[in-house]
Amino acid sequence: MRIYIDLWIKELDSDTANILWKLGFKAVAVEKLNTDKIKPNDIVVVKKKVIEARSRQELRERLRGVSREHSIISIKPYSIEAARMAAHDSRVDTIIIDKDTLKYMDKNQFSLMKQFSKPLEVSFKTLIEPNSRVKAMIYRRINYYLLYTKLPLIVSSEATKWNEVLVPVSTISFLTTLFNIDSRDALLSISNYPREILVRKGVSI
């Protein structure tokens, strides 16, 4: 059985953990843990910190004191300077693209991310955004990212309820049809690429 990893669960309760385990997820990065009942053998739970920064100074302050080990740090940059800093800071694991941050994801940002090997993270909620104009803008940026930088794209769920989790087979098909990529490459977005980040953080799966 394949190992799937969800790198962004917003709120995890026992129902969600149960569904994730059934779907084949072996590890998840959680922003807010709502239960203590998850058995340690069931699923590997890693802490995730999403930092929203409007300036370089703010990002620096928020990154100060954050533990590098056993927690995933993702940045939502709300300005160009924050985006550029996030790309070259070694404490940052992923940079999130959504409807608010897509403005700062340009060619220069992607080349900087390529230089410092920072992957782009997109949540499934963003990909199925109701506003088609925003969706098209996100699509264009991810398409450019995949085509020219050849860096890994990480797809996460940003789930708050059990029915918002990623269904692996459907997610692979969705990425295949949307970005016209091979299903093997699409599979890596929810398996190997997130796993590499976790392994780098010292988590054994």
């Binding site: 990623l166 269904v167 087979v169 459907s170 997610t171 098909s173 969705f174 295949t176 049809t177 949307l178």
Partner: peptide, 8 residues
């Protein structure tokens, strides 16, 4: 693939 994607 389209049908599988829409199921998800």
């Amino acid at each position: 693939d389209y049908v599988i994607a829409s199921l998800g």
